[in-house]
Nucleic acid binder design. Structure first.
Lengths: 225, 225
DNA sequence: TAGATTGTTAATCGATTAACAATC
DNA sequence: TAGATTGTTAATCGATTAACAATC
């Protein structure tokens, strides 16, 4: 149904079990994102505990689903009482890698690139844009916050000097594969792609495609049928 | 596993069978989008026929999947020969509702709203923004192409005068439900939501959530494990 | 203790795939 | 005709859910 992600064998000293030998589906990962967001809200509203039923309701899933998802990673609750909000939030952030910072390079400084760069949620989650690369000479040289837009030709040398964990591709489809090949060659292991085309990456590189048209087309289908 | 969409009973005079009594999963709809895009490319490159195996390869799925997806809607191929590219493209566009125009209202004229408004792919697919509504008085009055940004208070009267098929919500999370209630009350039957929160809509309204953070968080999980 | 809720197993549901008769 | 490829059925795979013993 979907490609699964196999977690490498690595133990963890701070109470979060690693799901080695097990496989976590992307469905589960996406729900963990959602649980995390809700738990942050609950924490803001000073809730101290939450049951799987309550969390499920707030996320629009079943309570069995919540418990099942969490069970891949450890025992976070107390029978009869539920989960400590802050504790569970911290645990999920750690599982998701949201307890640390990630360096990101943005390719494409068009309106989509602009929106991504200034999207506040990313920074709050620990994702920091270190580079912006663009072909349009009219945009090169401009500064977005403390990052100067540089020509794509400088990507290699700059990424060697200041490496990143993640590359975000917000360029026209034609240049996407080229950029991916470049950053993969430079050791980048994770790519978020907005270009609506199939990209080839090695097995050990994570690729997530975001296609803005799909949601609208799905609504168009819904309205038509 | 997911909510299914039940197609209403309605026959079609132009050769595309309607899948009444059947249910089409959102997985299938998303793949139809993908087939459509590839077929458009093939048509541009003057390919006249394509097999399910070739189409599958270009989309990154199996040939059985392609044939299965298409089989929900009719018989589009010729045994031994494959599919006519233009014919199949036209058929899928019709199934998806991409053979006509859709009117869209945009809520939120921030950088995300800006990116969506100027996203070329939408217009090419037949989605036209008729309205842009925004609370920030500094933005109200500006013109994006031929559309003037108007205050959110005018949404009701303007949408009554010039109705839309789809509302796109690109506002902060806090105002999203309010906007949804408003447009649902005005008869809008399809909503694309970028606010990272659960929205309540009646059963007969289509809602698609796009969460930009999820793809990055999923990569953060990938890199961490 | 009685009530509540977890963690987990087994059952169910539904999506994908293999296989092949039909047929160009 | 022989080769190719569809449309469809049945088998498989995997995600979700119901149910309940464990236990706070």
């Amino acid at each position: 149904m979907q490609r699964k992600f196999r977690s490498p064998r690595s133990d963890d000293s701070r109470g979060v079990a690693s799901p080695f030998l097990d496989r976590i589906s992307d469905f589960t990962v996406r729900r963990l994102s959602s649980y995390c967001r809700i738990l942050r809200n609950l924490e803001t509203n000073s809730a101290s505990t939450v049951s799987s039923a309550k969390l499920a309701e707030l996320c629009g899933v079943t309570s069995a689903q919540v418990r099942k998802d969490l069970s891949y990673f450890g025992n976070f609750g107390t029978r009869g009482l539920g989960y400590q909000v802050s504790e569970l939030k911290t645990a999920i952030e750690k599982i998701m890698g949201l307890h640390r910072q990630w360096s990101v390079a943005l390719f494409g400084a068009g309106s989509l690139g602009h929106a991504l760069f200034f999207h506040e949620g990313f920074r709050e989650d620990g994702f920091y844009f270190r580079h912006v690369f663009e072909v349009d000479p009219l945009k090169v040289g401009k500064k977005w916050q403390d990052v100067e837009i540089r020509p794509i030709e400088e990507a290699e040398s700059r990424l060697k000097r200041i490496p990143v964990d993640i590359a975000v591709v917000a360029t026209p489809s034609e240049s996407a594969q080229e950029i991916v090949d470049l950053v993969v060659g430079l050791g980048v292991k994770a790519i978020m792609n907005f270009a609506p085309r199939k990209l080839n990456v090695p097995d050990n590189v994570g690729l997530r495609n975001v296609n803005l048209a799909v949601a609208l087309e799905s609504l168009s289908f819904f309205l038509s049928n």
